[in-house]
Design a protein around this nucleic acid. Structure first.
Lengths: 161, 161
DNA sequence: AGATATAATGTATAAATATGCAGAAAACAA
DNA sequence: TTGTTTTCTGCATATTTATACATTATATCT
């Protein structure tokens, strides 16, 4: 769970600041009590889909391609996330329960993220079936969902009261 | 002038194929008679603003952020480019002459590319003034213009007959 | 054209980033 | 809990990418 915090922190840092290297990012993470090695950082950046591009001033900076459309991202937080009630697993698949009428919207958002881990989704009225790609565990899909919907699992816990 | 060809070829290759490393790209360029060293490639990729991102399958690929909006790019070719008549230099500035009435459109396109080299533009009816940023030579702006309007200089030569 | 300045390139190397492997931690099952 | 499997991580290192410096090519000026 330290990892989730770290992923979120990395996302935040590279979108809000101009990070020029792993080394710089490592120091920033350390100052937040989320230290790790450069190797782990390399792996985490890959998981987040983060890349590196010229900054236009002779250097380089990290960035998240997803940020092109930060409207969907914002929408995800205020529309998609609050509509999710719970997630259960069955036969290697995941079933997401939503507020009635919201399954289609939610599945649309998940599809549009085009995450490799998810082969496809089917949505009813308040239920979504998520089919993980071959070789992908349900745990990996959970991580994936947490990445595209930060705070999802924590919110679900709260909903259970 | 080999360089311009190479830049265009690189652009084309990384947008049309999934290029995973300099090494792969070098081979492709070589097969097109546009060989260079890895060092030059590194510099060229930076000039083009090309970056590297995870490909979603455990590897990495190069890409051009500009590609988000390839509508403007197409428009540039069929609308902006044909409207340009000539480019002259004066006092470290560049003056672009266009077909009457087209200066505003053209300047708008140039502004929207947000190239670091160009501090700003002023457009009349058939004349645009381009102000290079401090420390940027007119030659560098020419290269910059060729990047955002491929074929520009060749076309101007033709127009002079 | 010849002289001077600017940009482009290659070579060698430095710097940055990715990864195989092994151990640690966490999740899961019974 | 205990054993079993999966994920995560660090270490050391391989791989990849960037860059200082020297050289060549290209453009600029008179």
């Amino acid at each position: 769970m330290q990892k989730t915090k770290r992923l979120l922190a990395i996302e935040k840092l590279i979108t809000e600041e101009e990070i020029s290297s792993h080394e710089v990012l490592l120091k920033k993470l350390k100052s937040k009590g989320l230290s790790c090695t450069q190797a782990t950082l390399s792996r985490n950046l890959r998981q987040l889909g983060a890349g590196r591009i010229p900054d236009g001033r002779g250097g380089y900076k990290y960035f998240l391609p997803e940020n092109n459309s930060n409207l969907p991202s914002k929408a995800a937080k205020i529309q998609v996330l609050p509509a999710i009630r719970e997630i259960v697993e069955a036969k290697g698949l995941l079933v997401i329960k939503t507020i009635p009428g919201n399954a289609s919207n939610t599945a649309f958002y998940i599809d549009n993220t085009s995450r490799f881990e998810i082969a496809g989704t089917i949505a009813g009225d308040d239920t979504i079936l998520i089919i993980p790609r071959d070789g992908i565990s349900t745990n990996q899909v959970h991580t994936c969902l947490e990445i595209i919907l930060p705070g999802l699992h924590e919110q679900i816990k709260k909903n259970n009261f």
